[in-house]
Design a protein around this nucleic acid. Structure first.
Lengths: 232, 232
DNA sequence: CTAATAGTGTCTGTCAGACAATATACC
DNA sequence: GGTATATTGTCTGACAGACACTATTAG
């Protein structure tokens, strides 16, 4: 069937910047577009919002359909909306961008809408052409992630359910692109109320003294925050 | 003419949270809806995005058409997008919310789309029913303004082209809802690089020593920021 | 003069960062 | 033991806030 409208139609899509930390790099999940428009080019996963579907639901569904990744229990937040008139050659398409973060565990599986899905370092993704204005969307998502590490517990969604302070520090170092003093970081994380909660186990990386493990302590906003300073 | 589409139509609107400081209160510009939908109820100014119009352009245009206020030289930033499926009874309407700030100078003039436009204290506006989900949009806009005072020069858009430190402090006090130490605030503002630039004039409020006047110093991000602390 | 506001100086507690010291594992 | 990492301790500089003090106007 077709629908009629007295105004020219405006389409609403969602695009997802799904980040993870793997191989000592901040990586983003990209899909090779299988749909007719810009077929073959790399793009962020995303697609059209359905008529009775909430925006974050659409983001989760498109991510699942296009990449096989289920972001259900993890972080998903709106970043910004991109709506320049000619950003999409199919017509007027306004896209709501979402940021998601996952541990490095899941391996993407190409779904129906996309010929392929794969992780790629953010630095590389920003150096190659992406479909539509996805370069700007990716930048906005990464910027948001970098600043949210400072004052929210976002970093815990980059690691598994339990983690060591060093693993958490590695997330900060990779996302911010600078090294941090292990001692000071340790004290700041444990001093930020509700950031992490101690678990019973220990964990050894094979070298050195084994570390205590922690789980997310329930706080979403950090007091005090883990501040980022200008690189030395 | 009518347009046909293979999908049910989704409408995109913009809504503007225009804030100002007047009568020692943070106030928001509201319109009494003249359009058929929710006629007579109070709402944020806003409306449908045109086919070839960028989103911030639509925000400025709707503000001008509905209230006679021209926000051209002032601050206008995107806040968030609201798209719950049944937030608007006319159908699927996704709204991109914008935040704007102006000095208390302009008096609103009702335009064609709205029966009336008026300033109202934010505290009062949040206590009465607003059309659609504009209560949540207003809250998001005010939250954004409060946090942006900390690390951007947003406060300068609430005052005239030249201002005293006390006028700037008044903006912070009203928007944050707490009093600030005049001496410490003075030192922090002048110590934040590029926040304000001294002008030649002085200004007297009638009582006490006349104050030096300043203009915006060009910086958008403040180093160091003007931090907000928990109320004493 | 007094009242009022503008602007400066000083002290103190907090905290980030540098870096040293200790703890505990593996080889 | 030696090495590597975890964790804790110590010092120092920067800075926010409290508050005292000086400066400059009106009346």
């Amino acid at each position: 069937m077709t629908y009629e409208s007295e105004y020219p139609p405006v389409y609403v899509t969602v695009d997802v910047v799904l980040l993870t930390v793997r191989d000592d790099a901040l990586q983003v999940l990209l899909v090779e577009r299988g749909a007719r428009e810009q077929r073959g080019s790399l793009a962020l996963p995303g697609g059209f919002v359905r008529q009775e579907e909430d925006l974050p639901d659409a983001a989760r569904r498109e991510l699942r359909e296009e990449t096989g990744v289920d972001v259900e229990p993890a972080h998903l937040e709106q970043v910004a909306t991109f709506g320049a008139p000619y950003r999409d050659s199919r017509g007027r398409v306004v896209s709501v961008a979402y940021l998601a973060a996952l541990p490095a565990l899941p391996v993407p599986v190409a779904g129906t809408d996309a010929a392929a899905a794969r992780w790629e370092p953010v630095s590389a993704a920003l150096d190659e052409p992406l479909a539509f204005d996805h370069h700007a969307i990716l930048e906005a998502g990464v910027d948001r992630a970098r600043s949210k590490l400072e004052y929210t517990a976002l970093a815990t969604t980059f690691v598994g359910p339990t983690f060591t302070v060093a693993e958490l520090r590695h997330v900060y170092e990779v996302v911010w692109g600078r090294s941090l003093d292990p001692g000071n970081f340790h004290r700041k994380v444990l001093g930020s109320e509700g950031f992490v909660r101690r678990t019973a186990e220990q964990r050894s990386s094979g070298r050195g003294r084994p570390a205590a493990t922690y789980e997310h302590g329930g706080a979403t906003l950090l007091h005090p925050p883990i501040l980022r300073r200008a690189a030395p």
